[in-house]
Amino acid sequence: MIKKIFSFIACIVMMTAVSVVASAASEYGDERVVDRAGLFTDSEENSLREITDKIKEEFGFDCVMVTVNSYYNDNMLGAYSPMDLSDYAYKFYNNGDYGYNGIIFVVSMSTREWWFLQFGEGKTIISDSYGLEWLEYKVLDELKDGEYYECFDKFASSVYDFAKEATNNKPYSTGNPYLDVEAYWGKIKGKLIVIIIICVAALALIAWILIRTMKTVKKQPDANSYVKSGSFNLYFRNDTFMYSNTTRTRVNSGSRGGRGGGGSRGGRGGRF
């Protein structure tokens, strides 16, 4: 009898423990828009959710967007201190009920950091070198300007475009560029001065060439046309090594975290 009672109590305890663990793990569940920092209105959140649901439905791809005030003391992951925002993003996605293939975009308001991180096929659909750079150009200005809904909306729309293109087995890349005027502007506006300078230099070169065709009169600098054929006789040659000079320069082996960096878990992010 006592054994039965003890067994019953043990079962209850076990079930409670499991349910607590289960409830802790499933508090996000597969929720793809998690606005813990309170940046969106209800309608904005619903609008974002519609896009992420559509991406999941059409492509089986989880597009997860998370805003937090501070990821250091986030009790959503239990007693865990993330190394950096990329680590937080990684743990957040893995603790949720998301699929193998996906991408997560996390913004931490107190530290003013942001991070993209891909999972599974996400690394192919949105590559580190090409896709993440495009997403950054697409969303960073709005993030810096405090237009959070516009920022995440553009993120989700871009992920939709990338996921759709990947269904052709040819994801966006340097060989298959993603042509988006707004994102292009984000990419080139920092290089506008360089573009203008090269433009002006090219025009000056064109003008110089055209004017030169009009002026065919020029002095001959030498008398090469009047050297008697076969008359050149090199009667002395001597090449002597004198000395050597060696310099060395330290080369950066790559940045850790920060803008465009890999973070502790990969992906791409920085401050805004």
Binding site: A223, V227, S231, N233, Y235, F236, R237, T246, R248, S253
Partner: peptide, 27 residues
Amino acid sequence: WRSGDYRYRKTDYYSVKRAGKMTFLDI
């Protein structure tokens, strides 16, 4: 060349001497 965290650049300097003759006609 690159070795570890450094890029090395070696410049060897040479003293080069040449002497020659040629004929010019009707400059």
